[in-house]
Amino acid sequence: MGHSFGATVNASGPVITVRGRSALKATEVVGEDIRAATALVIAALAAEGTSTIRGMYHLRRGYGGLLPKLAALGADLTIDQE
């Protein structure tokens, strides 16, 4: 599959293998569905630096209140309309 947040991700049938670093680094990624977008938000919050996540309409459609709640907890977020 490739690299994301500094980790190497491989998929073989129903199995996904992630080999990564102890510290994630910022990157630009695309959330293809609601679960992917949510997972990418969590990874971006843990990563060092500023990440850009496209495809956030998936997350807003199902978890519309998540981003404001994360911001209220101190997450540094900038939200642009896609």
Rank of each mutant, 00 (worst) to 15 (best):
A26M: 02
I53C: 03
V18N: 04
G65K: 10
G55W: 00
A47I: 03
T78D: 11
A39H: 05
M1P: 11
R35Y: 14
F5W: 00
R54T: 14
V9R: 03
D76N: 14
L45E: 11
A36P: 06
I42D: 11
L66Q: 02
G2C: 06
R21A: 11
T17V: 10
A75R: 02
L24N: 07
G74P: 10
G2N: 06
A36C: 13
A23R: 15
V29Y: 01
G2D: 06
V41M: 02
D33M: 02
E28D: 13
A43T: 07
D80F: 05
Q81G: 09
A37P: 08
I34Q: 12
G31P: 07
H58Q: 08
E32S: 14
G20E: 04
R61H: 04
R54E: 10
G64S: 13
K69V: 09
A75V: 06
S4A: 15
A43R: 02
G20A: 08
V9Y: 00
I16C: 12
Q81I: 08
I53K: 01
P68D: 04
E28F: 02
A46C: 13
I16H: 08
L70I: 03
Y63H: 13
G64C: 06
A71E: 15
G55S: 02
L24G: 10
L67W: 01
L24I: 10
G55Q: 01
A47L: 07
E82H: 09
A47T: 09
R54K: 14
R19C: 09
R54H: 12
T27I: 04
R54D: 08
N10Y: 11
G49Q: 00
P68Q: 09
A11R: 15
A47G: 07
L77F: 08
P68N: 06
A43H: 01
G31A: 07
A72Y: 03
I16V: 15
A71T: 13
V18K: 00
I16G: 07
L45P: 08
L40V: 03
K69H: 09
D76Q: 10
M56R: 02
P14H: 13
E48R: 14
Q81M: 07
R21V: 12
L59H: 04
M1C: 12
V15P: 01
L40C: 02
E48M: 07
R61C: 00
S12E: 13
E82M: 08
E82P: 15
A26F: 01
L45Q: 13
A72H: 06
R19T: 14
T78S: 13
Y63V: 04
S51T: 11
Q81L: 11
K25C: 14
D80W: 03
T27N: 06
R61V: 00
G49L: 01
I16A: 12
A7K: 09
H58Y: 04
L45C: 14
L77W: 02
